[in-house]
Design a binder for these strands. Structure first.
Lengths: 237, 237
DNA sequence: TGAGTGCATCTTGTCTACAAAAAGTAGACT
DNA sequence: AGTCTACTTTTTGTAGACAAGATGCACTCA
């Protein structure tokens, strides 16, 4: 156990396994590790002061959530993205996001709202301070929390999967030089606030309108890639 | 179908790990292992002739797909079901099933259709021979294959999660003595055939109508025959 | 007698070492 | 000279043993 110092974020600690999970997620979401990259088990185990078995367990878990892809006798690779996946994303995202947001509006408690506002505060700060990774990270946390508030075990899996690529798309198409894009980030932040208000008021219809507008904003930013319109499938029977 | 009861193929084999995965899924889907049950690592490792690490890896993977639930320093338990999860299921299932089936209708190739028909043949056989587990298993395989044909990475996670409980609901509310339920199973089988036809004709609209009717049939069976008997689902806490 | 505490036991979590499979490389043969 | 093959190297997969945490029981003490 010679060099635990060389690792910046984690190398020692009570729960190094949680650190591994957390850090890997963060790196994949912010594309510090690019889609398609190979993850070396020994390198990770050394960096986080773990042996390979717990690292392998974490890999399996991440694979189950769609962060990475595993193949027998081959190295783990970060889930890849393609032009096709971009189309697939904007085809399905509205349906899932709308469903999650509507359900959240129906179920949210006062504590849920408080939790959302806390995350949104961090998101707003990241936007205003031009912290790109922070913005991506807290945007992910925001929508994931909405999904948790929705409190429906069947919608969360797809929402989780969508959020992974939502984060990465947000990084891929970010152009810091573009002033209009910056303005639209502030608009997105305001939309978050409005979504929280709608959820707090248990106004599912308004929440749906807002979340659709929220996604449209993202889609417009990458209109050059001809992202398709979402499927119009209503929730409920 | 291949009936994996106690331990016929366990112990030896070229890919005991695949056998473990496969068998565990099957047991959970058919409720040979009840929701809420604990899974003992050493028992499984002994049954399948593996050591604990690969068993633990398999558990992580199954947890990621929603078959089991893991908690730190506590035994793995089969994902529980409740009255609430029933409501949640029928709230979300139409949306996801419809989306998957519509997409499948748009993307299906001749080979896809052939694969579907093969699965449906097994399903029909299971229905006609009153093989309850086989029926549940091949129904799961059928809808999962439809989801794979849809070829959209973002809809599959929720579909997978839904199918787990779809299978278990199908077993919970099955009443072999009820003649009308038997007739409705045959109706479900005919619906499968029609769904395949619609997909083969790339008729998304018709496929949607059919899949909605298919789900309504399941829902009616529950309401009619299960509810009167008192909702005796003692599954999981 | 009841409640709290310490111990025994079992289960989960982790580590080191070994086995197997794939990839890359050098050599020999055609 | 090119290609096939055998070997070396690297990486993944597995095994068995050890450590840590949790649970249940018995025992002690008020």
């Amino acid at each position: 156990m010679a060099n635990n110092q060389s690792s910046p974020e984690a190398g020692v600690g009570p729960d190094r396994k949680a650190a591994l999970n957390h850090t890997l997620r963060h790196r994949i979401l912010t594309m510090q590790i690019a889609p398609g990259s190979v993850l070396d088990e020994v390198a990770l185990s050394e960096e986080f002061g773990l042996s390979r078995p717990p690292v392998r367990e974490a890999m399996r878990q991440l694979a189950g959530e769609g962060f990475i892809e595993l193949e027998a006798n081959r190295p783990a690779r970060v889930t890849s993205m393609s032009y096709q996946s971009l189309r697939d994303f904007f085809l399905i995202a509205p349906m899932i996001y709308v469903a999650a947001t509507r359900l959240a509006a129906e179920h949210a408690s006062k504590a849920d709202i408080a939790g959302l506002r806390e995350i949104q505060d961090s998101f707003r700060d990241a936007v205003h301070s031009n912290d790109v990774d922070g913005r991506v990270f807290y945007n992910d946390k925001f929508h994931l929390r909405v999904g948790e508030i929705a409190n429906n075990a069947y919608i969360l899996p797809s929402l989780r999967r969508l959020l992974i690529d939502h984060a990465r798309i947000g990084k891929i198409f970010y152009r810091p030089s573009n002033a209009r894009m910056l303005e639209e980030l502030h608009e997105a932040s305001r939309q978050h606030d409005e979504i929280i208000d709608a959820i707090a008021n248990h106004d599912a219809d308004r929440a749906e309108v807002l979340i659709r507008a929220h996604l449209d904003l993202s889609r417009k930013n990458m209109a050059m890639y001809a992202a398709p319109e979402g499927m119009a499938i209503s929730l409920g029977v």
